[in-house]
Design a protein around this nucleic acid. Sequence first.
DNA 1: ACTTGCATGTAAGTGGTTACATGATTGG
DNA 2: CCAATCATGTAACCACTTACATGCAAGT
Lengths: 179, 179
Amino acid sequence: MTVEQLCLSVLYEGEATGYDIRRHFSEGEAALFADASIGAIYPALAKLEAKGLVDFVNQEQIGKPNRKIYHITEAGREAFLAALREPLSKDKCQSSFLYFLRFAHLAPPDIVVTHMEVRRRQLAQEVDRLEKFLLRPTNNPQGRWVLEYGLAMIKAKQANLDTIARKIGSTLGANCHAI
Amino acid sequence: MTVEQLCLSVLYEGEATGYDIRRHFSEGEAALFADASIGAIYPALAKLEAKGLVDFVNQEQIGKPNRKIYHITEAGREAFLAALREPLSKDKCQSSFLYFLRFAHLAPPDIVVTHMEVRRRQLAQEVDRLEKFLLRPTNNPQGRWVLEYGLAMIKAKQANLDTIARKIGSTLGANCHAI
DNA sequence: ACTTGCATGTAAGTGGTTACATGATTGG
DNA sequence: CCAATCATGTAACCACTTACATGCAAGT
C-alpha cells in the first residue's frame, strides 16, 4: 500500500487530479483504510507517468488553476491487477487516544474529560459522514462493504466510549496521581 | 507517539530491556494502539539515556546474552507526564485487508477466499490472546479498558466478516471481472 | 542440522511529512 | 481583510524499516 498503488487504485475507477485523489483519502471512503498526503501524491503521480502506468490531460480553467486530469493506461490496469494478487501486509493501527487512555490516571482530570468529549464529537461526526455516503445509490457492493465496516467500527467505539465514561468518574476520583 | 515516547511509557510502569519493550508492542496489550520495531527501539533508548530520561544496569547472564535493564529517571517521569498533557494527534489506521476488499471484484476468487480465511483465523487468534490477558488479575483499570476496547473492535470485525462472507458468493459470482 | 528465542546493535535506504512557493476566487 | 478552497509542485528533513552482524542455548 504505497502512495503509488493508492493513486492507481483511485484512477482505476475513474479520472482524477492529484487534488481529487487527496480528497479521496481525507474525506472519501478510502480514508477508512488508508491515507495519502498531498506532498506524497504529486511525486507518486509523476513516477507513475514516467512508468507509463498513467497519463494526463492539461485542463485550463478560468479563475482557477490549471488541472492535470490523470487517466490510467492499459499498462496501469495490468499493474494494478497484478498487485492485487500479492500477499497482504498486516493491518496497522495507531491510536493516540487509546495511548492516552492507557495512562489517563496520570493526566489532569480536566484534560481527560476534554479528550473524551472531543472523541465523542469526532465519532458522531464520522457516523454522520458515513451514513450520508451510504445513502447514495451509486456505490458498488465493495464500496458499501467498506462503508458498513467503517460504520460498525465507529459504533463499537462509541459503545466503548460510553462504558469507559461511566467507569472513569469513580476510577479517576479514587487513584489519580496527577496534579 | 514517537518510539522514544513509547519507550518512556513502558519504562514508566517498570524496568525493561529493549527486547522486552519490543515484545510489549508486538505481543503485549500496547500492540493494540501502537507499534515499535526493534531497529527503532535501541536508538530511541540510547537517545533517552543521552537526555538523562532513563538509565540502565548491565546484567550478565550465563548462557544468554547480556541485558541492559533500563529504568526511568525522575526527569524521565516528568517528561512523560508533560507529554501526556499535549494535544492528541489523530488516529491512523491502515488496512491492507480493507483495501483488498474494496477491489475484491477484480481479484481471482480463490485469492479472495484465501484472504478471507486467513483473516478469520487471525481474528480468532487475537480474541484468544486478548481474553487470556483479561483473565490475569493484575491489570490496572486503564489496562483493562484498552483490552476491552481491543476485544470489542475484533468482535465487531468478526461480525462484519461473517456478513460479507455471506454476501460475497452471489456478488463475486455475478460480476467478477477477474481472470 | 536447522530453526527459534534471547539479546544487542548499526547502517543504508525508503517512504513518507511538513513547510514553503505561487496565485486567483469566494465567502465570512 | 482574512481565511479557505482550488491546484500544482519542490525540497529539506525525519522517523522508521529492513537487513545485516554476532553469538549462545534449547528445542525439533
